[in-house]
Amino acid sequence: MQSTGFWAGAGRWAGRAGVALLSLIALGIGVSFLMVAVYRFVPPPATALMAWRGIQGETIRYHYAPLEEISPYLARSVIGAEDSRFCQHNGFDVEAIRKAIREAEQGARLRGASTLSQQTAKNAFLWPGRDWVRKGAEAWFTLLIETAWPKRRIMEVYLNIAEWGDGNFGAEAAARAWFGKTAADLSPREAAMLAAVLPNPNEWRLDPPGPYVSGRAGTLQSRAGTVRAQSLDACLF
């Protein structure tokens, strides 16, 4: 009888735990849908990375600007730097992923193949890090924003919450801090310089730019011209 009672109690506990887990998952899904729906129209008030930088003692500067108030040179430079198939893929660049895997199999260092959509999902909704839980959540939010947001909105949010060093988040804050002008007035060279430091904005400086950043900016300025000439920005303009 005691054995039967034990297993019955264990079964009830497992059942309650299962219900609690399913409820938690359902709550997470519901919250994610709600956040994506709200951010479709409302600027994100802050991000987890902004909060973390604030805890580290940085003064956060964040000025949200609609896409039409950001120089198209910047969007084109970012596409050239980070995601040339941004307007063609549905959130994941399968070709880039396959290429990265092939290069790794040949002995090269495994490089990232995340799209601008994935980076937007990560920056807007998630915490900094590289663990598998966060990567799974990133994939989920990427699917959601690609379904619920137009590409223009994805680019707008990306350009507004990207980190550009020294507590500057978004194109408007970065343009004011580094060039003393609005994001709308960025020149092709200035836009390319901002895109050049995106992978590591706290180490690749703009004040003044080093040889690497200057050279990469020149490359990205040329790529931005290609983006426009080949209509790789057709989903934006």
Rank of each mutant, 00 (worst) to 15 (best):
L232S: 00
L22Y: 05
V157A: 13
G57E: 01
F33C: 13
N123M: 08
G54R: 12
A184H: 15
W13V: 14
F125L: 07
R189Y: 06
F92P: 01
F6K: 12
R102F: 11
L159S: 05
L220Y: 02
N123F: 03
L143C: 05
Q106N: 15
L232A: 00
A183S: 15
A217F: 00
E172D: 14
V78L: 00
V36A: 11
S187R: 12
P43Y: 00
E203G: 04
R109Q: 09
L116Q: 02
Q106I: 03
R189N: 05
K135N: 05
F33V: 14
A171M: 14
T47A: 01
A17T: 13
A8N: 14
I29G: 11
S117R: 03
S222E: 11
R223V: 04
V133F: 15
L143M: 09
T120C: 09
L49Y: 08
A121T: 06
A10E: 09
G28Y: 08
A108K: 10
L220V: 04
M1V: 10
A191H: 09
V94D: 13
Y212R: 10
A37M: 08
I60A: 04
Q230T: 11
G30L: 08
A174I: 08
K99Y: 07
L186A: 11
A234G: 04
R76V: 01
T59P: 00
L49G: 00
T47L: 03
F41M: 07
A224V: 01
P201R: 08
E95R: 13
Q88D: 10
I79H: 00
T4F: 15
K135S: 07
L206H: 07
G57F: 02
R228Q: 10
R130A: 12
A192W: 11
F179H: 12
R98H: 12
L34Y: 14
F86G: 00
G170C: 10
I70Q: 06
G5N: 15
V38K: 11
